[in-house]
Design a protein around this nucleic acid. Structure first.
Lengths: 229, 229
DNA sequence: CACGAGTAATCTGTCAACAATTGACACCTT
DNA sequence: AAGGTGTCAATTGTTGACAGATTACTCGTG
């Protein structure tokens, strides 16, 4: 409901939510960094009230962590917590994929196929680096999730989880071999969707994300973010 | 993070969150009912600021719905939306169950077994009505979820989803046959856990919740809540 | 020189007043 | 009489100021 109905809500709290999310995801505010309400409010040109409401929502989303009477910081999750998030994404997006297999229209399937092969043609994939987590990858997953037609699920995945993951995917999976594999897995998923085979689609999506997760777990070289700013 | 760390945070916003949640879940404020900030703030003995923060969090949790410049209402989901929630619970708790199979200590398994058979002995189950959604049922699921040792998952399930579902499970599954079946399914799940068979545990839990979901879908006689108060 | 008590500064938590928007009612026009 | 228009009350959205708590600093002392 947030990310979808945001456009028609010019309330300062909503704007603050949007801009603050962007600040965090773009890395302008680093993980672990403290947020001073008064300072940030002044930067955003609003007062503390609406900002606090936005912060509270971001808290619930897990992007911010508050210590009572001390302050709020941008979350700086451990590698394990990121892995945990991926596990959740795994089952949730698996569900979305199963539903999508039953509910995607033929036109949407066609579009999905286009997205997949357009992107495969003109870049990235064979050069190895960069397919995974590219716009093309994003689009593919986005369209499947939205194809689930499950509002709550879409909100949770796109509105909450993806925001957090977008933020935390450091330079995950620069792994060159992974790119090709990921693309192939996408193809398999698409085929299952086209067969309207929900069971297979769910299983394949889960495996796909599981592989992505393991790929991340391998590239655990970058330490956690600096605890202070 | 909410439901677990609430005890040590006597901030008015936290208290408001707690009390308001309780008011909604207990049905003191009915689905679809309008919430007037000033009135509710006075009732709670606080000012509108902290209350608004609490409301914003409940919004994110899906218990409240806001129409800009008009007001917030208690959500009154359709049956389909409740079914959707159950689907999400299905995969999430399936994941929790798989993790629990690997991570529960032997002591916890023993305790789980006790919970199951204690409750089976002294009430409900054979009399038919009332096991499903009884404290015993709750405990069983709670302990498994917490046994997953996955903070984020626990928060999502216990802090968010269960709150919402507790609220929306009208008088679901008064279905007498269901009670016995539910208990048997619990036993099967427990056995899988004791075998440390995560795959089976996940599958059984998903089937268990799937049955519960279908049981609800059958008892779709009670219409949606009155749209106004 | 290190340590601790006391104090000051800073920031969060909270409140009450102000501004802006909405919905309803009454009134006027056709 | 029906429809539109303008005004008004009520409620949400926002602000700036106050109170309480925590952290950091300073000064004195062992």
């Amino acid at each position: 409901m947030d990310v979808v109905a945001l456009e028609k809500s010019p309330s300062l709290s909503d704007q603050a939510l949007e801009r603050l999310t962007e600040l965090i995801i773009r890395g302008d505010i680093k993980p672990g960094a403290r947020i001073q309400e008064a300072v940030l409010a002044r930067q955003l040109g609003i007062s503390r009230g609406p900002l606090r409401e936005a912060i509270r929502r971001l808290e619930g989303r897990g992007l911010l962590v508050r210590i009572p009477h001390v302050g709020v910081r941008v979350a700086s999750p451990t590698v394990e917590e990121i892995i945990d998030l991926y596990m959740i994404r795994e089952v949730l997006e698996g569900l979305a994929c199963r539903l999508a297999a039953e509910r995607l229209t033929d036109e949407e399937l066609k579009r999905l196929r286009d997205v997949l092969f357009d992107h495969s043609a003109h870049e990235d994939v064979k050069s190895g680096t960069g397919y995974y987590q590219s716009p093309g990858d994003q689009d593919f997953h986005f369209q499947i999730i939205e194809g689930s037609r499950q509002v709550r699920l879409i909100e949770t995945l796109l509105g909450d989880l993806y925001q957090v993951l977008r933020f935390f995917r450091y330079r995950s999976s620069i792994n060159p071999g992974r790119a090709k594999a990921a693309f192939d897995e996408h193809v398999s998923i698409l085929e299952a969707l086209e067969r309207r085979d929900g069971e297979a689609a769910e299983r394949l999506m889960r495996e796909h994300l599981q592989h992505a997760r393991m790929s991340i777990q391998e590239t655990v070289d970058v330490g956690a973010a600096p605890p202070d700013a």
